[in-house]
């Protein structure tokens, strides 16, 4: 990117940045909806979510004997299915769009994307692992955590990560 185009990028008004943010979000969301359910369930969720979750739970709590079958975490006591939208994608798309829309260097944006995506992935694994234990030991808490506490907490954590990321962008800009 030339110095001129960098300056032009920095000068974009907040309203235009907000539009970029929303358009990016809609485009990413639309692309995500084009992925067939089978691909998500059999490949993405199996390799990326259920198998990892099962390994972690079995590693920490061997008595649970959890197995991953496609997009389902199965044990003798619970059967937890991961479906589209339960993969942290909503929070990830928000963060990716917000990072793209913010005036920062490409390098710092890449740092934000990789760190943010890793953080959301980790939080989501903790959420799914936690939900497994809730299904097993506190079934009546499931809806409270699944539909109410977990989604709002993830978004708040993503907002805080974004505040940290934007704050360090400024620090870098002053330092240069």
């Amino acid at each position: 990117m030339t110095a001129l185009s960098k300056a032009q990028t920095q000068r974009l008004s907040p309203a235009i940045r907000l539009i970029i943010f929303v358009v990016c979000y809609l485009l990413i969301s639309f692309s995500y909806l084009q992925i067939p359910d089978e691909t998500l369930a059999h490949t993405v969720y199996y390799h990326g979510v259920t198998r990892v979750c099962a390994d972690v739970i079995n590693g920490l709590f061997p008595k649970e004997s959890v197995a991953a079958f496609q997009n389902v975490l199965v044990s003798g006591q619970a059967n937890l299915q991961i479906v589209r939208g339960c993969d942290g994608s909503g929070a990830l798309f928000l963060l990716v769009s917000a990072i793209i829309a913010f005036p920062a260097s490409v390098c710092w944006k890449l740092v934000g994307l990789v760190t943010g995506a890793s953080l959301i992935y980790l939080i989501n694994l903790i959420r799914i692992g936690g939900l497994y234990f809730i299904v097993v030991y506190r079934t009546d808490w499931f809806q409270l955590v699944h539909v109410y506490l977990a989604p709002s907490l993830i978004i708040i954590l993503v907002c805080l990560f974004y505040a940290w990321w934007t704050g360090n962008t400024k620090t870098l800009a002053h330092g240069q």
Partner: peptide
């Protein structure tokens, strides 16, 4: 579908 896939979180942030 859009809302349930995550736009439900986009709206309050916006």
């Amino acid at each position: 579908v859009y809302c349930e896939m995550g736009a439900r979180w986009l709206l309050p942030v916006i």
